[in-house]
Computed example of a mutant assay.
Amino acid sequence: MKKGVLLVNLGSPDSPEPKDVKTYLDEFLMDPRVIDVPLWARTLLVKGIILNTRPKASAKAYKKIWWKEGSPLIVLSERLLDKVREQVNYPVALAMRYGSMTIKQGLQELVDQGCTHVKTIPLYPQFAMATTETIDVKVDELVAEFFPKLSIERTPAFYKRPDYIEVLSRSIAEKLEGLDYEHILFSYHGVPERHIRKSDISNGNCKMNGKCCFKKRSPQHEFCYRHQCEITTVNVAKQLGLKNGTYSTTFQSRLGFDPWLKPYTDRTIERMGKEGIKKMTIVTPAFVSDCLETLEEIAMEGEEIFHEVGGKEFTVIPCLNDRKDFAQVLANMINEWALNPKQSPSSQAATVEEM
Rank of each mutant, 00 (worst) to 15 (best):
V288P: 12
V288R: 12
V288D: 11
S289F: 13
S289D: 09
S289V: 14
S289C: 15
S289Q: 15
S289M: 15
D290G: 08
D290M: 07
C291R: 06
C291L: 07
C291M: 09
C291G: 12
C291P: 11
L292M: 03
L292K: 02
L292R: 01
E293L: 03
E293I: 05
E293V: 05
E293D: 09
T294D: 01
T294L: 02
T294E: 02
T294H: 03
L295E: 05
L295P: 03
L295I: 07
L295H: 04
L295M: 12
E296G: 06
E296P: 11
E297H: 08
E297I: 08
I298H: 07
I298L: 12
I298E: 06
A299E: 07
A299L: 02
A299R: 11
M300R: 13
M300K: 14
M300V: 15
M300W: 13
M300G: 07
E301L: 13
E301W: 10
E301A: 11
E301T: 11
G302F: 04
G302D: 05
E303Y: 02
E303M: 03
E304D: 15
E304L: 12
I305V: 13
I305C: 03
F306P: 02
F306K: 00
H307P: 06
H307M: 09
H307K: 15
E308K: 14
E308A: 14
V309F: 04
V309S: 03
G310D: 13
G310F: 10
G310L: 09
G310V: 12
G311D: 00
G311I: 00
K312P: 02
K312L: 09
E313L: 04
E313I: 03
E313C: 01
E313H: 08
F314C: 01
F314L: 02
T315L: 03
V316C: 10
V316Y: 04
I317P: 00
I317A: 01
I317H: 01
I317V: 12
I317D: 00
P318M: 06
P318Q: 04
P318Y: 09
P318H: 05
C319G: 11
C319V: 08
C319H: 07
C319N: 14
L320M: 12
L320D: 09
L320E: 06
L320P: 12
L320I: 08
N321C: 10
N321H: 10
N321E: 08
N321V: 06
N321S: 10
N321G: 09
N321Q: 06
N321P: 10
D322W: 08
D322E: 13
R323S: 11
R323T: 11
R323A: 07
R323N: 08
K324T: 15
K324V: 14
K324Q: 14
K324L: 13
K324I: 13
K324S: 15
